[in-house]
Simulated scan of single mutants.
Amino acid sequence: MDIQTSKIELVKEILNLENPSLIQRMFDLLKSEEKDAFELTEIEAKEIQIGIEQFDRGEGIKWDDFLKSIS
Rank of each mutant, 00 (worst) to 15 (best):
G60D: 10
L40K: 14
K35G: 01
E59K: 04
I3V: 14
E59N: 08
D56E: 15
K68E: 11
L10C: 06
L67W: 06
L17G: 01
K12R: 13
E44T: 03
E13K: 11
E34T: 13
E13V: 02
M1P: 07
S32Q: 13
E34I: 13
I14R: 02
I61L: 03
G51Y: 02
I48T: 03
S6M: 15
L40N: 08
D64N: 11
L30D: 08
G58A: 06
L17H: 01
Q24V: 06
D28N: 14
I52E: 03
E47R: 06
A37K: 15
A45S: 12
Q54M: 14
V11Y: 05
E13I: 03
G51P: 03
I8Q: 14
F66G: 01
I43P: 00
I3N: 09
A45D: 08
D64G: 00
I43E: 15
E39R: 09
L29T: 13
F27Q: 13
G58K: 04
M26H: 02
S6E: 15
E53M: 09
Q49L: 12
E34N: 14
N16M: 09
E39L: 15
S6F: 11
N19P: 04
M26C: 04
S32R: 14
L29D: 13
S32D: 13
F38C: 02
L29W: 05
I61Q: 07
I48V: 12
D36I: 06
T5R: 12
P20G: 01
G60M: 04
K35P: 01
E33I: 12
D36F: 10
L30Y: 07
Q4N: 12
E53P: 01
L40T: 05
K46A: 08
D65Y: 02
D65H: 07
